[in-house]
Amino acid sequence: MAELIAVQGDITTMRVDAIVNAANTSLLGGGGVDGAIHRAAGPELLAECRKLGGCETGNGKATPGFHLPAKWVFHVVGPVWQGGGHDEDDLLSNCYQRCLELAKAHHVRSIAFPAISTGIYQFPPKRAARIAIDTVREHVDASDVEVVRFVCFDRETLEIYEHILEEPPRVPIG
């Protein structure tokens, strides 16, 4: 089982094989984590993203990290919160699962995730953290990832992740 840890910090400074970008469907930059990653990676990232033709919600694509400490950036498009009745949970879970699939394909052993969809997309933070941790726990062994960092922008988010990580893993139903 991989080591899953929560840290407070700036995802653009993480020394891991891959960082995850909470992107929009264009993949051409935006605000929050997306804008910070694009600024830190340099203009080459935008040029590479232009070649990808965007991305659907719940899916992801990989690019090099360019000027980032991470070799790879996995761009995923999380769902906009619409009250929970529009497959938001499944779409968010798909983002984490897709990143682990990309990790396997790109031989990534360490990965850093932001709290996908919890900023401007307004996904409830506790619900998002539960989905993130449960999905990673369920799929990480198949990815060969050894270290997963959940990078939290603020103390409140960090405490949510730490609390859930202290709980025993949930047993999947079915």
Rank of each mutant, 00 (worst) to 15 (best):
V16Q: 07
D87W: 05
T25H: 13
E88K: 01
L4D: 07
W81C: 00
I131L: 07
K104C: 05
L4V: 06
T13P: 00
L100H: 01
R137A: 04
V145T: 11
G9S: 08
G32D: 02
E56N: 15
R149K: 14
A23T: 06
R109Y: 09
G83N: 02
Q8E: 15
G29Q: 01
S143Q: 04
T57A: 09
F66R: 06
W81D: 01
V151P: 03
A142E: 14
L158S: 00
I11S: 03
H106K: 15
A132Q: 04
N59H: 14
H107A: 15
E166Y: 03
D141K: 15
E162H: 11
E156Q: 13
C95A: 01
T57I: 10
V20G: 07
E48H: 11
R98Y: 05
G174F: 11
F123W: 08
E162T: 14
L45M: 12
I5A: 13
T12S: 02
V76Y: 08
G58Q: 04
A103M: 03
V108G: 08
L28E: 09
G54S: 05
K126E: 13
G58V: 07
T13V: 12
P168A: 12
G54M: 05
H75M: 06
I11H: 08
A115W: 03
E48D: 15
E162S: 12
S26F: 09
A41Y: 05
Y161D: 02
G42P: 03
H163I: 03
A6W: 09
A22F: 08
A129T: 03
G31A: 14
W72V: 07
G30F: 12
V147T: 15
P69K: 10
R15M: 06
K126L: 06
T63Y: 13
E44A: 13
P125N: 10
H163Q: 13
V77W: 04
R149L: 15
D10P: 09
K126C: 00
R155D: 14
H107D: 12
C55Y: 06
C152V: 10
N59F: 11
I116Q: 09
L100C: 03
D17T: 02
D154L: 02
E138S: 10
D17P: 02
V33E: 06
Q122S: 07
K51H: 14
G85Y: 10
A70E: 00
